[in-house]
């Protein structure tokens, strides 16, 4: 295990506070602050109220979908068309929820207990949760995720308002740099989390496939990037496991974090 075991009071409240600390010391606290300064500024530009901007962060909690909504809410835009664009930009939320929840829930977890952690789920929260949750006892994983999620969501909402009021003062270069922080920090932290071939291959294939499919004019290009890149990475992972097993078929099963 790369991370030391969790050593607070061992209660659910302790796990929640541990999540808060992880969130505040994570690179994503920094990312969320700059992302939502940029988003607040955008809302100001498009003439929305500050209350609307903050409510959209609380309810959507998905950067690309929020930008599409704001820029697509021109007076003549069609409701259905914008709704489809918003929805397609958020398909990534489905696999991250499916990949995370089996790791954090308990056998007796009720579905309603998972609604809140599922709403908090964004890529930033997912990356931290996937890194830390396996080091915690199972009964502390949901409060831990809620601590990470609530802290980052609160930061995002507060800095939506900050960006809204800062808008007039922002130089253009600062605005562009704030928008570059999102892709670079997700890129680097995804590279850090990619410790096994499955994740390394998925990251590299996704980076290569998305521009190729977009350039080729393929519809639903992100969806195909995920399915094709993910499936190829999965097949590579299976092939590697198969080779490892046949290379030491008499030895004991290697202890790995992935099955």
């Amino acid at each position: 295990m790369p991370e030391p075991a969790f050593a607070t009071s061992g209660t659910a409240a302790g796990a929640f506070l541990h999540g808060t600390r992880v969130a505040l010391t994570s690179v994503f606290a920094f990312v969320i602050v700059f992302t939502y300064i940029g988003y607040g500024a955008l809302c100001h530009d498009y003439g929305f109220s500050v209350g609307w901007a903050m409510l959209s962060t609380v309810l959507q909690w998905a950067g690309p979908a929020q930008v599409i909504l704001v820029t697509g809410l021109g007076p003549g835009a069609l409701v259905l068309e914008t709704a489809i664009a918003v929805s397609l930009s958020s398909v990534r939320l489905l696999p991250i929820v499916v990949a995370l929840l089996p790791m954090v829930r308990r056998e007796n977890s009720r579905p309603w207990q998972l609604v809140i952690p599922a709403h908090f789920m964004a890529v930033s929260v997912w990356v931290e949760a996937m890194r830390h949750a396996p080091t915690l006892p199972r009964e502390h994983r949901i409060p831990f995720c809620n601590g990470v999620g609530l802290t980052l969501l609160t930061l995002g909402t507060v800095f939506t308002a900050v960006g809204y009021y800062m808008q007039a003062a922002l130089p253009a270069l600062f605005g562009a740099a704030a928008m570059f922080i999102t892709p670079i920090s997700f890129l680097v932290s995804t590279a850090r989390n990619a410790r096994i071939l499955l994740e390394k291959a998925a990251l590299a294939l996704g980076l290569l496939l998305a521009p190729v499919l977009a350039y080729a004019g393929v519809g639903f290009d992100l969806l195909w990037t995920g399915v094709i890149g993910g499936t190829l990475a999965y097949l590579l992972h299976r092939w590697q496991r198969h080779r490892q097993r046949s290379a030491k078929s008499s030895g004991p099963e290697s202890s790995s974090t992935m099955p």
């Binding site: 499916v98 997912w126 995804t190 998925a202």
Partner: peptide, 14 residues
């Protein structure tokens, strides 16, 4: 699914 999620995220970043 975890591989698909990672590839899709990488696509968003690209």
């Amino acid at each position: 699914v975890r591989a698909v999620a990672t590839a899709m995220l990488a696509g968003v970043l690209a």
